[in-house]
Design a protein around this nucleic acid. Sequence first.
DNA 1: AACCGAGCCAACCGCCGACTA
DNA 2: CTAGTCGGCGGTTGGCTCGGT
Length: 276
Amino acid sequence: MVRAPCCEKMGLKRGPWSLDEDQILTSYIQKHGHGNWRALPKLAGLLRCGKSCRLRWINYLKPDIKRGNFTNEEEETIIKLHEKLGNRWSAIAAKLPGRTDNEIKNVWHTHLKKKLTKTNSETKRVTKKPKIKRSDSNSSTITQSEQASLSFHEIETSSSASASASACTSSSDFSSVTVGESKNTKSEDIESMETISPIIDESFWSEAAALDETSTDMSSKNSLTVSNEILPLQYSSNYDEIFQQSHDYNSNFDDGMDFWYDIFIRTGDQIELPEF
DNA sequence: AACCGAGCCAACCGCCGACTA
DNA sequence: CTAGTCGGCGGTTGGCTCGGT
């Protein structure tokens, strides 16, 4: 079935709402309510689609909307709820009276995610994220937003055997991924591995163990080509050494896991090291 | 003063499930 | 059962603002 567009675009206004439009919408809803969003703009005399009216009302004009900065308590609540619920913004918003899902989503992407990353980096080594150039167009693509959604705390460690990530189709799916302990992984590695990408599965570890760890090409300037086979081994058994190599190579690297994290989700890519 | 890049956030888009004719 | 509508949701975008150079 082909879904009809939500509104007839021709002749309908888009973009930011004017004060007049806000007043018209507000007074109409206060008088008549919003029984049918689709019919509302016509009845209210607005050149907007119903969806746009609904969004404007819910996110901005509703009288119980709380404006202004989020308090520390609200931020903490969002962080805790996000740990439990993932990207279910409306569910999170339901727990925060006066805050909208859109607002919470924005505050998450602009403030809280960074805040959490910063918190993580205080306890972990953090490196500067290198630019990554895709070298395999057939490999599974991870969008910018998916990548952005993969904050460290979203992936929990467990003693289960493997991470079953192939079924993940959206960023929110990642929140439930668990990462197993490898039989050939040192305990200190495990501690650093809270952040392993969900694409890793059991074969990752067994194949890694069988490979020759000398095949990494760290020699070419500003470019580290990483094969699918090499990195798992590097990470699983030789993390510290590789980290040191990259750190020596570029002394301006910050410490941390972002670098390795990216490599994990991008194995097979060419990693471009930043120039200094 | 002009330019530029990063950050922010309101608004839009596309999809989905519920509902109805 | 099918087709269509609607409200709601999460992801994404683009324009504005601000700070740095």
